[in-house]
């Protein structure tokens, strides 16, 4: 155990943690939205993220930024990121929508018990993952570095790079957009109405099926955006990339309070930071162990997560 290392590098570990946590937070939004409205853990959400990572590489290659390509100009970088966010957001949103249509809606129409949804969710996840594995021959797919990390400034002795800043800032921006949409817009109000009382929401003229489609698309689009940030950061993806990220993001959602958009953000950032501290103390191989231990400990004291639920507040 190396506490001295963590103390010496606290600021640096925090910055890396926040960067990783931003990606968890964006993916966590998808779990939280779906759970808030349907009381369902959409396990296929990890594959929605995976589809995004591949879409990003495909769109970049199509735009001439394949393996071996020269580093583009600043404007080129922004253009490639924007194109990737749009394409991956659309592809992930569409994947989420298809999962809803194929794996959940038929069950909903037949009033299936919750356990059946869970099985269907796991099935959809495995099917998507294995399909991607078959298509890619289980080979990882690399991409050229889009952003070369350059130190922008130092804070408490920690160097902060443009890449880290960009990832954290983009994630916050996406989160603010989603939170504003859910809390301020008419459609967002419809989402909250269904989460709080689906029957009364119908009496207000809210089409539940449309709300469900909306949350899958929104959650999928957030995972798509996260997948672009992941690709920029890691530069490599594979068919099973969603598994660990998905579980971590789900953990983040539960940690913050599932069904709570602010909880997803808090849980994601916190999980990223804590697992980096853990890696610092015990070594990298213990990172995931620490992450899940933290979850268990937090849930022992706050079973509803740090912030509790808000989307479907006070629904028994």
């Amino acid at each position: 155990m190396n506490f001295q290392f963590v103390l010496d590098n606290l600021a640096a570990l925090t910055v890396t943690g926040l960067t990783q946590g931003s990606i968890y937070a964006l993916v966590a939004l998808g779990y939280t939205l779906v759970y808030g409205v349907l009381r369902l853990i959409n396990f296929a959400h990890s594959e929605v993220f995976m589809i995004g990572t591949f879409t990003t590489t495909i769109i970049w290659a199509a735009l001439g930024f394949g393996v071996g390509a020269a580093a583009p100009s600043t404007l080129g970088v922004l253009g490639l990121i924007l194109a990737a966010v749009l394409a991956a957001g659309a592809a992930s949103g569409a994947t989420a929508l298809v999962v809803e249509r194929v794996a959940y809606r038929p069950l909903r129409k037949r009033n299936a018990p919750p356990l059946i949804f869970l099985i269907s969710a796991i099935g959809a996840s495995v099917a998507l993952m294995e399909a991607a594995g078959a298509i890619t021959n289980r080979q990882p797919r690399g991409m050229p570095s889009l952003v070369f990390p350059k130190v922008q400034f130092s804070i408490f002795g920690a160097d902060v790079t443009n890449l880290q800043l960009g990832i954290i800032f983009s994630a916050l921006l996406m989160w603010v957009g989603l939170d504003t949409f859910i809390n301020r817009s008419r459609l967002g109000r419809g989402v909250r109405a269904v989460a709080q009382n689906p029957e009364v929401a119908a009496l207000m003229g809210v089409n539940k099926d449309r709300v469900i489609m909306l949350i899958f698309i929104l959650g999928g689009a957030m995972a798509g955006a996260a997948s672009v940030l992941y690709d920029v950061k890691v530069g490599l993806t594979t068919y099973s990339v969603g598994f660990l990220i998905g579980i971590k993001a789900f953990t983040a959602a539960v940690l913050g309070g599932i069904g709570n958009l602010r909880g997803a953000l808090l849980g994601g950032l916190l999980l990223g930071v804590v697992e980096n501290y853990g890696a610092g103390v015990f070594g990298n191989q213990w990172m995931d162990v620490v992450a899940f231990l933290v979850l268990v400990v937090v849930l022992l004291f706050r079973p509803n997560g740090l912030l509790g639920e808000s989307l479907g507040r006070a629904r028994a």
């Binding site: 909250r192 709080q196 009382n197 029957e199 009364v200 009496l203 479907g312 507040r313 006070a314």
Partner: peptide
């Protein structure tokens, strides 16, 4: 509706 059905979080 019966029981009023107020959205508690709004």
């Amino acid at each position: 509706p019966e029981g009023r059905g107020i959205f508690p979080g709004m």
